[in-house]
Amino acid sequence: MKYTYTIMLLLFMLQLRAQDNDLMALLNDNTEDPVIYAEATFKGSRLINGHTVQTRKAKAFEFLISHRFGRLNSGAYELFGIDGANIRLGFEYGLSDRITIGLGRNSFEKTFDTFFKLKLLRQSKGRKVMPISLAYLTSAALKSLKGQEGFNTTASKLVYTHQLLIARKFSSLFSMQLMPTLVHRNQILEDQENSDVYALGVGGRLKMSQRISLNAEYYYRFDVPEADTNYNSIAVGVDIETGGHVFQLHLTNSRSMIEKGFITETSGDFFNGDVHFGFNVSRVF
């Protein structure tokens, strides 16, 4: 009988002891797992030349200044390309967390561009599992350079791009993106044959530290006509993030900073040294 009391007392003490953890266990049993969305699959709204799946948050305003200098192999006379800079000024605004709109002006061929980006799926784990993030991008570009022979109406100077951005953040260090793309030119030159160009882009980023990442991007064009002397766009770069700024420094064979330009009009051969140094500076307000 004595033992019974001892056992009961022990049981009582055990019960007291166990309560500390019990309450946390009870709390965990009574609350749902959170849905954890993959934040910042990429640091910026651009991977290098092209868009990433990232949209701006609602009411966020982004100012983007991009430069592409001339070709590195143009020699010392051109200061390895520094003399011939192209600039794009971009203004982007988050209508909602999922919709970003933007306007840009490029010094190259005095082109105006505008885009609309819609986030369709957000990668998540936890209570809701979604393996990828998906966004749809559509953009239009208007070349306003004077004296374009054969392009007499405004409509004839318009080029549209439709793109799906399919991204996955595999880990906090590594993200990848696929970009099936259609570029439609309202009016084309004879040697361009097709007004539609289909391309598939692939890109990725590898984080070197919390604030620095390595990026790469490549666009492959399908069914390129023989007369087309352009090359596929290749770019490699580094992202450096400092608080509200993202600095992107890169090397690319593309001169243009908008979809229709770098996908269908890249005239440089990357492996022949036709490489442009460039940067994007983004400030979010």
Binding site: I36, E39, K57, A58, G94, G126, S172, G243, V284
Partner: peptide
């Protein structure tokens, strides 16, 4: 919103420790 992203991504690492 950018601060929120940095808070989750760079400082608290909420993906690892939600």
């Amino acid at each position: 919103s950018l601060m929120q992203e940095h808070f989750n991504e760079n400082y608290l690492e909420s993906e690892k420790w939600p």
